[in-house]
Design a protein around this nucleic acid. Structure first.
Lengths: 250, 250
DNA sequence: GCGACGACATAACATAGGTTATGACAGGTG
DNA sequence: CACCTGTCATAACCTATGTTATGTCGTCGC
């Protein structure tokens, strides 16, 4: 087990050979720590690095002319942030830490080296990009065709599911360090209405509210509310590995 | 200039060498024609091919338990459809032709061969996936933080911009073969409200309505309404090509 | 210990957009 | 030709959600 962010990340998917590890290791820069609320990059600026999240949460968003904000995605430990900037010179969104966090930068233009050198990593990157798309698609459906209640429940469940993979301490897996403002901006709702909805869910014993975030008490109950189906989070790594003749993690 | 869908598609981005062309050619199956309204694949079924759109429009969407529908994206000639299914065994959305259309199937699992064989194509596929994400992100913003008027105008402009690339006959570039139902399901609105909004835009001389679709009359006017900025559609191919030492199209 | 700030809470009121209903028209089909 | 079916159109009415306003509480800086 390596201490590198990104190596750890990929070892989650497959067994890496020595060369893969060295490659990643040579490209990753040392982890950087950020306090909560730090702007890591801004839309319009030159896009040079992507990051892997080592600890804490981050949040990508876009600000509109009228000052309102749309949160695009939240990132939990283990996530890779900024792959979608690959196609663009200038960043298309902002990135902010939602808690204290440590992230590892990785120079964007070196991705091409990775693709050229490691068949396995190339395919895994593509897999991750496809999963990112699936998450965006689900968020789209959330915004387009669900009620506020469903939106909130669905979003909470998604984040909890994504957190599950990264979290060791079982208690922590149900705790999401989210403010109501972030939730509102992610779901296209007003904070007032998020508050109403969240209190509703709390009344029903499904969640708990605290100043340090939201805790899920009854995932099944929430699942009923939201019509949540986690399939879109479960990438099919097995087939991919078989297809390219790579081995699953030890 | 080749007659293959996908070769033509990639020659748009860069000069392909003989091997690239042979590779793509060997994988592409013969084009298939579909009449308007044909279901090409359904959510939950095994995901075997992606497609390139040779002519006509297609539309990916998800149906909800209550029968409502969320349109995820529309595809115009030159687009690649289904890359996001790369990460999953079963399809996460449905695909339907929105007009008569001809598409070229390409076996999904052979993508890995492409990645392994051609550095250029590998990078271009990744670029396309990143651009697809940018489009989803913009759609997200549209749904989350814009009024019905803005949504409609923004969406129409996006599709027109995307169409520009593929269209030869200048007149056709401003004509979108979209029904109001599709528009509504893409924007998370009701058809009634789309109709109201569209008529408003028509009153103002910005668009025209016909049974065969919508025509844009005044792109600048629409741009003002929507706050549309096409930057998210303009991938930076040049930097990528330079980075990997490939040549732009002749 | 005081002031400022950020997060949460709640109430009164306003509205964008949803729902339901109905009709007209065009194109396809038997 | 008559009948559907899909698309567009429009009106009356309704409600989920937004807006504005105000208050509380805890935390941080000094």
């Amino acid at each position: 087990m390596s201490s590198s962010c990104i190596i750890r990340h990929f070892e989650h998917y497959a067994e890496l050979d020595q060369r893969d590890r060295e490659l990643l290791d040579s490209l990753e820069k040392s982890p950087r720590e950020f306090t909560r609320g730090t702007v890591i990059w801004q839309q319009g600026t030159e896009s040079e690095h992507f990051y892997t999240v080592s600890s804490g949460w981050a949040c990508s968003f876009r600000t509109m002319e009228d000052g309102s904000r749309q949160v695009l995605d939240l990132y939990v430990p283990g996530d890779i942030v900024g792959l979608r900037e690959f196609a663009f010179r200038r960043r298309v969104s902002n990135l902010l830490t939602a808690t204290n966090a440590t992230l590892c930068p990785f120079p964007k233009h070196r991705l091409t080296d990775v693709f050229a050198t490691s068949r396995l990593l190339c395919n895994l990157f593509f897999l991750i990009a496809a999963r990112d798309q699936a998450i965006l698609v689900e968020r789209l459906i959330n915004l387009g065709r669900r009620s506020a209640r469903e939106k909130v429940a669905h979003f909470l469940l998604e984040m909890a599911h994504r957190l599950d993979k990264a979290c060791v301490d079982v208690d922590d897996c149900n705790h999401l360090p989210l403010t109501q403002v972030v939730l509102a901006d992610a779901l296209g709702l007003s904070t007032v209405h998020v508050n109403r909805t969240l209190n509703e869910l709390k009344q029903e014993g499904l969640t708990t509210l605290g100043p340090d975030g939201i805790t899920l008490l009854d995932r099944n109950g929430l699942q009923d509310v939201a019509g949540f189906d986690p399939e879109y989070l479960e990438e099919d790594v097995t087939s991919l590995l078989k297809n390219i003749g790579a081995r699953p993690p030890a």
